[in-house]
Write a protein that binds this DNA or RNA. Structure first.
Lengths: 116, 116
DNA sequence: GGAAACCGTTTCGGTTCCGTACCGTTCATT
DNA sequence: AATGAACGGTACGGAACCGAAACGGTTTCC
């Protein structure tokens, strides 16, 4: 039983959610940053810079910079992999989990308000 | 008959859509820019800088700059209002309509693929 | 042990974005 | 005709971003 959405509903949902996020005054993340953040929180760990770069189809510095920004926001944290010290493991944080959880709630709420 | 989504489904939908957009290699819009673009394409005209600033709860320069960027992408166009030459009317473009339409289709497709 | 491969970060020049404050034009009111 | 309000845009210093390339630290492989 999959989710059925018409294009007009999908766009309205996207607009209402974006609008709510902007108005809430939180950080103005880019689409890349959102994709990275959600991947870290939804896909099973471990997450590495290279792995994320491949999954998103972007270069490594893009990931490094996004992690810098979201690390400053305390949405993610970095830790050296002790089993292979070349790797950096990206981990979730309490603040990041709260942010993602709240985002999910906003989408659900806006979906429920959607007109036919 | 409203749309029912669980938070986990909402987040997965958001992730899959963002991921598809990033991988498609299009412009990396910020959440603010997306909110502006969708508002221009979904809400009835006319759209002005001030009106958009109020709707999003941001300052005018934010709108001006976003219109600069999206104008360079040919997603929107600006025209002086001849009835009140203080106003600038923001209009849709063919390229912008295509972009928005494609975004809607991506959301619909990802929603259909959503697991239970 | 030394070369090669791998990983994440840093550097470079250049672009875009931010918020605050100010500017030039146009309209409304008197 | 003049004043004040309204509108969009610009200037500023500071921050974040880009892609391409180079850089150290680590592991792997002969």
């Amino acid at each position: 039983m999959s989710i059925h959405l018409r294009p007009s509903q999908a766009l309205r949902l996207w607009q209402q959610t974006s609008l709510a996020e902007v108005r809430a005054g939180g950080p103005d993340l880019t689409e890349r940053q959102i994709a990275i953040l959600l991947t870290i929180y939804l896909d099973p760990p471990p997450h590495t810079v290279r792995g994320l770069a491949e999954k998103l189809g972007v270069t490594k510095p893009v990931i490094t910079r996004a992690l810098d920004t979201m690390g400053a926001l305390k949405f993610v944290s970095r830790h050296r992999d002790e089993r292979d010290r070349r790797n950096v493991l990206i981990r979730r944080t309490v603040d990041g989990a709260l942010f993602v959880e709240r985002l999910g709630d906003v989408v659900v709420a806006k979906a429920a308000e959607l007109p036919l």
